[in-house]
């Protein structure tokens, strides 16, 4: 890369166990909302994803919210879905993102618009995430757009994508993960993990394919605030929450404390699994708990690289 590497990339390349988090931009033009959350996380995590209209709900653009985060000293990870933009718009936005200094990018399919607040919308899916990763690697390496047309200054990113250890069919999902890594993904953020046993088995297969050596696997954790929160998380497609954990939240006298305990237990178990290079903590709607989790899990202070 011609420009300096991102903090996240440097942390991972130095062999540290990375810790990232996530900010969901507001359903409004309220920049202070983003700035506020960015300030809470700055210095505590290595980087934070800024979601791209997650669950197909219209929110402030990821590029704009990433810039607000960067201004507050939090390194952002731009998300770009294939749902809302064709190849012209994606490449254009990413040129802009690179020009604004954004260095980390997660490419993903995007939840189907039928989940969101504009189910009447057309979707795009001009390219899929494997194709987009390959195209962005080509752009960075060969200064070409998807059409083959040349650019004098390509957009370069620390490229990542996502994987869901609990989606079906398992073998095909692993093949798809391998395709993403073949296409240029250097880090992979997983769907939220609640079922440690199943995640462990998935990681065995990831290791058997040697994928953990070719991309950093960053395990996803969601911190739930309440019984309702864990139940709502459970209905997200491709999520696997063992009934025992939901039951614990139901019976808990202090649901918030129980949510934190569950998250800390999961983190402890995940850290024991070979091939996991970092943790990606998602506490959408409860960002203020992230510092507590990081402190209690022993992730602070973060290494300087």
């Amino acid at each position: 890369m011609s420009s300096e590497k991102s903090n996240l990339q440097k942390i991972l390349e130095a062999g540290h166990f990375s810790v990232s988090s996530e900010i969901g931009p507001p359903m409004s033009a309220n920049g202070q909302f983003v700035r506020g959350h960015a300030k809470e996380l700055a210095g505590l995590v290595d980087a934070a994803n800024v979601t791209d209209c997650q669950t197909a709900i219209v929110r402030m653009s990821s590029v704009a919210a990433c810039c607000l985060c960067a201004q507050e000293g939090l390194e952002p990870v731009l998300q770009m879905t294939c749902r809302d933009r064709n190849r012209i718009a994606i490449q254009s936005d990413l040129l802009g993102a690179a020009a604004l200094g954004l260095k980390n990018l997660v490419v993903l399919s995007g939840d189907h618009q039928s989940f969101g607040n504009h189910p009447q919308a057309k979707n795009v899916f001009d390219v899929d995430s494997v194709q987009l990763l390959a195209a962005l690697r080509d752009q960075a390496e060969n200064s070409v757009f998807m059409s083959g047309a040349k650019t004098k200054m390509p957009a370069e990113f620390f490229l990542g994508s996502t994987a869901n250890p609990f989606a079906d069919p398992e073998e095909l999902q692993l093949i798809r993960l391998e395709k993403k890594i073949n296409a240029g993904a250097k880090f992979i953020q997983t769907q939220a993990i609640y079922n440690i046993e199943r995640f462990g088995r998935w990681m065995e297969k990831v290791r058997a394919r040697g994928l953990h050596e070719r991309a950093y696997i960053l395990a996803g954790i969601v911190v739930n605030k309440s019984q309702r929160s864990i139940e709502m998380t459970g209905i997200v497609p491709g999520m696997d929450i063992p009934e025992a954990l939901i039951e614990r939240m139901r019976k808990a006298e202090d649901e918030q404390a129980e949510g934190v305990s569950i998250a800390l237990e999961l983190i402890e178990e995940i850290r024991k699994i070979e091939g996991v290079s970092g943790l990606h903590i998602m506490a959408i709607g409860w960002e203020t708990i992230v510092p507590t989790i990081l402190e209690r899990a022993g992730f602070l202070p973060r290494p300087k690289v």
Binding site: S129, V130, D168, Q173, I175
Partner: peptide, 30 residues
């Protein structure tokens, strides 16, 4: 989502994320 390179993360027990009645196309391909 007209994916060309495998299923998205929303494929579960052979069904598509949009609707439990809809079969996952990539499960069928597989």
């Amino acid at each position: 989502k007209s994916h060309f390179n495998g299923p998205c993360g929303g494929s579960s027990t052979g069904k598509c994320e949009i609707d439990p009645e809809t079969e996952c196309g990539w499960q069928l391909i597989y």
